[in-house]
């Protein structure tokens, strides 16, 4: 079994505050779509933030390609090839789509190479090409999410982590976002996503992870997780088991 990212028993929280996740673990295999589900406050976003270096890890290890990532800054982790798109999408509202993509290549020193890759991205996402000179803040939610995801591809990352990409989007647009994710994974980019809409997320994923009270509860093929009656009762809004 090849593990791209291996998170073992980590504890993390905000500042000096209590630990939000305590004993979470996670295995990420290359090229698949992984979906983390769990109720509000379970620590899903916190887990992603801990992996990408925005929160310091108090205990446990994050291993990426056999290398320990604990204690690295977000910019260093990005350079290793892990990209994170937070819930707020982290766009520069007052910059155009093209400028946003350019910022996406901030860590690449060769500016001409960045421009070439931007052109490639615009080629693949016509919706962005049409709006290349428009301010990101003026676009619709779905377009903004598309831009945020497309922007990660500039540096050709190994893993893209997405925090609730479907938040606030219409159902039809949500499906488009999942299609983009599938396309990304088909190209060999591993996707790790947190989804509030557990049913939707698991149906579109290969691998499911259930997180609650800061701990990993289940980890397995998405279909298995989806079928488990206890998970259905507590997390998928299904009928209560008798």
């Amino acid at each position: 079994m090849t593990k791209l990212l291996d998170v073992t028993n980590i504890t993390a929280g905000y500042g000096d505050g209590p630990a939000i996740i305590d004993g979470a673990h996670l295995t990420v295999e290359p090229g698949k779509v992984h979906c983390i589900i769990g109720p509000n406050g379970a620590g899903k976003s916190t887990l992603l933030k801990a992996i990408c270096g925005m929160l310091s890890i108090r205990k446990g290890d994050v291993m990426f390609k056999g290398e320990r990532l604990n204690g690295l800054r977000p910019d260093q982790i990005l350079r290793k090839g892990i990209c994170f798109v937070p819930q707020e999408r982290a766009l520069f509202a007052k910059m155009t789509v093209r400028e946003n993509l350019r910022m996406g290549g901030f860590i690449i020193d060769d500016k001409r190479e960045v421009e070439r890759r931007i052109d490639g991205i615009l080629e693949r996402f016509p919706i962005l090409r049409e709006r290349a000179d428009q301010h990101a803040g003026t676009m619709s939610g779905g377009q903004q999410q598309t831009l945020a995801m497309a922007r990660t591809l500039i540096i050709r990352p190994d893993i893209v982590m997405l925090d609730e990409p479907s938040l606030g989007l219409a159902p039809k647009v949500v499906q488009e976002m999942f299609d983009i994710m599938k396309m990304m994974s088909a190209e060999g980019v591993t996707v790790l996503l947190v989804e509030q809409n557990a049913l939707m997320g698991l149906k579109n994923a290969d691998w499911g992870v259930v997180l609650d009270l800061g701990r990993t509860l289940f980890e397995g093929p998405a279909a298995t997780v989806l079928a488990d009656p206890r998970i259905q009762e507590l997390y998928l809004g299904g009928k209560k088991a008798a």
């Binding site: 509860l217 289940f218 397995g220 093929p221 488990d228 206890r230 507590l234």
Partner: peptide
């Protein structure tokens, strides 16, 4: 293999 950790799972529930 499926890695459902039943013992710890019911504890968390």
């Amino acid at each position: 293999a499926v890695t459902l950790q039943d013992s710890s799972a019911s504890a968390v529930i």
